[in-house]
Nucleic acid binder design. Structure first.
Lengths: 110, 110
DNA sequence: ATTTAATATCGTAATATTGCAATATAAATA
DNA sequence: TATTTATATTGCAATATTACGATATTAAAT
């Protein structure tokens, strides 16, 4: 049916899935990598960095913002974007857990 | 057009996106969490753990496997599933990078 | 050889995502 | 105020995802 059975999973599971999904597109990975590279909040030129039309980039930015992975504030007549640390903390925690589990436990049989 | 412009991004970016996308569904998060919880390779009963029909679970398992996040081997007449560490290493690295960057750099203005 | 059990595949309906042209909006500047 | 610049929204076509019933496959057990 193309619709995820959100209500059958925990809030935690849904939250993690939303964060992961937001990173599940190369354009959105590219945006994050660019924000990290310039190492500061950037006003505007993300559109010029990506091989996509302006409305498409705008849409990807919106998704990253909705997921809580970037922040964007009006700054004069452009917008200032940067990484939203708290979103990344959540995912990082998930992978840290996995990593800890895997280090402790080596019962791999496959 | 509903089709991602894969060729316009780097291989790295596409790989990360594929991994993240595979985790972008609560059922697949639930599968990973279950595999971590039982702390061993599990033969079969993932279907019973999830609130989804067997063909649907099978499809989700396939996606996790294709993305390189789990492994599955035939073990008699059932299948033995477990976490694929190498897939998780890659994503963990990405978040580690981000985390390092953010710790070093506090030029947040948003 | 049949039956049973576990899992995969096929087919299909409902819905979501991706991408962009066209257009709207909103602030800065002339 | 009119124009320019930056960004968002709308509408739509192409494609992808989610879910599941029906069915196929495969290996073990009878």
């Amino acid at each position: 049916m193309g619709i995820t059975k959100t209500d059958r999973f925990t809030e935690q599971q849904n939250k993690l899935a939303i964060l992961a999904k937001a990173l599940g597109h190369p354009a959105r990975i590219a945006i994050i990598e660019y924000l990290l590279k310039v190492d500061t909040c950037i006003c505007g030129d993300i559109v010029n960095e990506l091989p996509l039309a302006q409305p498409t980039v705008s849409q990807h930015l919106k998704e990253l913002k909705n997921a809580g992975l970037i922040k964007g504030n009006f700054e004069g007549n452009s917008i200032c974007y940067c990484i939203n640390e708290s979103g990344f903390e959540k995912i990082k925690g998930f992978f840290q857990n996995i990593s800890n589990h895997l280090d402790k436990n080596k019962k791999q049989c496959c």
